[in-house]
Design a protein around this nucleic acid. Structure first.
Lengths: 212, 212
DNA sequence: ACACTTAGATAGTGCCACTCTCCAACGGAA
DNA sequence: TTCCGTTGGAGAGTGGCACTATCTAAGTGT
């Protein structure tokens, strides 16, 4: 299939596809002649994934490139690829150094990881992007004066753990070659799902408590 | 306190505070003379909230203005204000009309809402931003060919419900005047917390399943 | 008296995700 | 063969957004 058809089947403008090719979010098509290139079904798949990551997952283009590069890196094993891909996923602002709020937050996060027995997070320590983002977010709550007892965080952590189990169960239904892509897609695309459900649930719960 | 002190105590550059004032994210200070304005503790509070919403919650400035305007609107009751504020919260892309994937997603979401007995979401129907974002995200998963059984969605919905209960419990520990602001702050700032915990949990679970 | 600050308005900056324009190279129709 | 529309590729341009720098008139401290 040629660029025009790829565009039509995906709904992405040709100019944008060219941009993604230039940014190496898509592998180049097979060059037939100087002015003709052939794209396959896997290009269409990849293009749809890219679009989803960027538009639904609100991921920056540069980040999507890194994530996909990690997922594609054939020099790495299955696990290393997954880890690298999730590691490259977009994350929030970094916690500030020498900030008492950040210090308190860090302590609290460490307590939660210990209580949850998430040794992996402990080992990786404050290098993991998710850990740093978590600390920054909690530091921010602390700065605003909102309490966030460790107990309350543990509720969230426990629920996050259940989510992870459900997600990994789903991933395991795929064959190994697609698992890496599936982890990336499901991790990112279930984020808006989860957040939307939470907002709907909050609206529901709130109207139950206050309206009636 | 003057603008310079507000800047120093919050860590936000004066130029940026001026920008927020212009954009009506902060109420103007009390004008003393033509070149002097006095800001109070509540300006500092509000400024910190604005910064958190924008930087930690990644909320666009225009959206933050709408959310805060709704939370401040004294012509509305407690509940209407909360609803309006949450309604204005940033949301993802809209589902496309006349798209079979979106249609399937819509059906599935309705089933979930019915099974969860979330009548409120049912009544509001497809007008609620969270509902529309949810449909768009699931449509996207469908387009990519990832299965998302209603059962799997229900797992997420149930967990979202538990989260909402925990969150509202926390909100109720505040006095009514601060509750609206608390709902906004906690809804938005717990999103990165939840997503970070989920990623950490996934890493943990994944290393448990695959590494060992 | 006069250098220094301040509040406020206006214009400019940098980044990012596209999008437009151009060009040389085909490729089917006359 | 000659024409003319189409294609892939590359570089420059666009629009939106969140600031940020400059400027001006009006105080303030010594």
């Amino acid at each position: 299939m040629r660029l025009a058809e790829l565009s039509e089947r995906s709904g992405v403008p040709t100019a944008t596809i060219k941009y993604y090719l230039r940014e190496r979010l898509l592998p180049p098509g097979e060059r037939i002649t100087a002015t003709k290139a052939e794209y396959g079904e896997e290009h269409l798949r990849r293009l749809r994934l890219v679009r989803s990551l960027i538009q639904v997952g609100r991921m920056p283009v540069a980040t999507a490139r890194e994530v996909l590069a990690a997922a594609d890196d054939e020099s790495l094993g299955q696990n290393a690829r997954m880890g690298a891909a999730v590691w490259a996923l977009p994350h929030g602002p970094e916690p500030e150094e020498d900030d008492p709020h950040a210090a308190r937050a860090r302590e609290q996060v460490d307590t939660v990881l210990r209580r949850m027995d998430w040794s992996h997070g402990q080992e990786l320590g404050d290098n993991a992007p998710a850990y740093r983002t978590l600390v920054a977010a909690i530091a921010s709550l602390d700065r605003l004066g909102y309490p966030h007892e460790t107990e309350h965080l543990l509720v969230h952590a426990r629920l996050a753990g259940e989510l992870a189990v459900a997600d990994l169960d789903l991933v395991e239904t795929y064959g190994t070659p697609e698992q890496i892509e599936a982890v990336v897609a499901l991790t990112v695309l279930y984020e808006p799902v989860l957040l939307s459900l939470r907002r709907l649930a909050q609206t529901e719960e709130s109207s139950r408590r206050f309206k009636k």
